[in-house]
C-alpha cells in the first residue's frame, strides 16, 4: 500500500499539487513539487525519516521541481548515501535544465544516475 504524505507546510508550494512519497515493496518514489530549497528540503528530509531509507531503491522525480539549492543537493546526497549503504540504487528522473546545471556545477552530474 503506497503512503501519500501531504506536505504540512502547504503555503510553501502550490496548494493544488503536493509533494508525494510512495513507498512500495522495493521502491521509494519521491516527487517533490516546487522549490527544493533550504526550507522545503528540510521539511522533506524530516518527513522521510519514518522510512527505512536503506531498504528500497529510490526514484527522485524532478518533474514538478522548479529548482534545487545546495540544501536540496544535500538531501540528494543523504538519500544516495543511505541507499548505497543498503545495496540499493538511486535514480534522478525528469531532471530539468536548472537542476542539471546545479548538478553540473557541483560535479554531482556524474555521481548520480540521471534518467
Amino acid at each position: 500500500m503506497p503512503d501519500i504524505i501531504k506536505n504540512p507546510e502547504a503555503g510553501t508550494i502550490p496548494a493544488e499539487k503536493h509533494t508525494t512519497v510512495e513507498a512500495g515493496e522495493t521502491l521509494l518514489r519521491i516527487a517533490p513539487v516546487g522549490r527544493l530549497d533550504t526550507v522545503t528540503s528540510g521539511e522533506l528530509s524530516d518527513s522521510l525519516n519514518e522510512y527505512d531509507l536503506t531498504a528500497r531503491d529510490v526514484d527522485f522525480d524532478f518533474a514538478e521541481v522548479d529548482y534545487i539549492s545546495s540544501a536540496g543537493l544535500r538531501l540528494l546526497v543523504y538519500l544516495r548515501k543511505n541507499a548505497k549503504a543498503g545495496g540499493r540504487s538511486m535514480r534522478l528522473l525528469n531532471v530539468n535544465s536548472v537542476v542539471r546545471e546545479i548538478l553540473r556545477i557541483s560535479g554531482f552530474e556524474k555521481t548520480f544516475t540521471v534518467v
Partner: peptide, 8 residues
C-alpha cells in the same frame, strides 16, 4: 529559478 537559487 537561478535567481531563486542565488537568493536561497
Amino acid at each position: 529559478s537561478e535567481a531563486g537559487v542565488i537568493v536561497d
